[in-house]
């Protein structure tokens, strides 16, 4: 695992996942923590993007705080129309994640739109698609955790800590 990542890359990914500086020279600030130049931070991020480790470097916004509404939707789709349905669902710009899952509810997607009315309207359209047998709207009622930080260092150790907690 992570054969191409040296220790600096791993530290860099950990730091930049959590806490990217909002200051004039952010790469230099990160470099200072790692003991390298800002230009090397930039080079390493470029390399990690090229190698397919980094999907994006930018902001993640809270849809709720921006006034948007979001939901998770579970659907049962007829197998012979599965990809046709998936393609139609994917055309909605607010559909950000769409997965096939190993269940009778075989297609699951997330939808983010700017109003509840729009959400209802789009879900009604999708429910009406040929091949959609059941559609269940599963908007979050309570949130207990939201945050992805993948530890790039000593994963086995982390597991141990969890076991002990």
């Amino acid at each position: 695992m992570n054969k191409e990542l040296d220790n600096l890359d791993q530290q860099l990914l950990n730091i930049t996942q959590r806490d990217f500086p909002i200051t004039s020279k952010p790469y230099q600030a990160i470099g200072e923590k790692l003991g390298i130049e800002g230009s090397e931070v930039i080079d390493r991020i470029k390399k990690l993007k090229e190698q397919g480790y980094i999907r994006r470097l930018g902001g993640i916004f809270s849809s709720k705080e921006l006034g948007y509404v979001s939901t998770l939707v579970a659907t049962k789709v007829e197998e012979d129309k599965f990809y046709k349905v998936a393609e139609k669902i994917n055309q909605y710009p607010g559909v950000t994640h769409n997965y096939r899952r190993n269940h009778d509810f075989n297609l699951w997607f997330t939808l983010i739109v700017s109003s509840s009315a729009k959400l209802e309207a789009q879900l009604a359209e999708i429910a009406d698609l040929e091949g959609v047998k059941v559609l269940r709207n599963l908007p979050a009622k309570n949130l207990y955790k939201l945050g992805v930080n993948l530890d790039m260092q000593s994963k086995e150790q982390d597991r141990g800590e969890e076991n002990g907690s």
């Binding site: 930049t16 996942q17 999907r55 470097l57 930018g58 902001g59 916004f61 992805v148």
Partner: peptide
Amino acid sequence: EEELLDRLRKLKQEGKLRRLGVILYHRQAG
């Protein structure tokens, strides 16, 4: 630049900007 930094800090403080940084490909990251 200063105005942008101030605005970003405020967006973060208000919770509108949840996080700034890298988003990884889970699969490639192991």
